[in-house]
Amino acid sequence: MGSVATVAALDGAIARVERRYGSRALARGASFERRSDEGVLRTGTAFDRIAGGVPTGAPCAFVGTGACGKLALALRAVAAAQRDGAHVMWVDPTASLDAVAASHAGVDLNRLLVVRTRRRADALTSAAAALRSGGFRLVALDTGPGLLASSVRADDVAPLVPLVRGSAAALVVVTDQAPRRLALLTFRFERVAWERELGRTTGWTFRVAGARGAEALFHARSYPRTLLDLGVRGELLEASA
């Protein structure tokens, strides 16, 4: 509880906002009820154990170099978002979404809207429209490798942050480079090892770093396109000790 002066100043500010925008423009947070499980999208993998799931109402970034598993896990998040019948928007400026892999990951393609536009402004406008509408449970923005000057970068999503905050939707930015000026909840993906069979690359193992140094391990196979959940690294070490 703040001081009397602070409370009075807050009341004055609230009164000014209500006078200007109407009595229903503001509501106290205590008057809202949210289920505890509404705040996250559970992927059903070890990622949930290190991060609690993909948060809704806040943006997050899956960061890592090419072929390190961030798309595979993002597709799991999409499938999780669709579990209740919701729609998902995938903003795909580089037109790189693999629909077959998405289908294998459990994504309902009928409820996945893919927006393919090369312009940065259009990509951000599409994501903003989806977040504002309330019709999407998750909006994923795949920036691609960001090789061109006109490519979307993680820092460009700053205008989307106020839209997603407090909403029931999640915003996942899948990107190669971590944002430099924007403070996003970031999960770093790193490839640990390639898997080769008969002289051909058939898969790779990758890890996802969450908070407090916890890491989740996954193995992605190219054929058939599957994602194996290996578990949390600490638990694996304990089991092998």
Binding site: A99, V100, L113, G135
Partner: peptide, 23 residues
Amino acid sequence: EAIAVAQHLRGRLGAGAVLRARV
């Protein structure tokens, strides 16, 4: 709501921008 957003983006971005995949 989702379809309304798709309609809006279709009008704004033109044909071939808002897509749905079928395997």
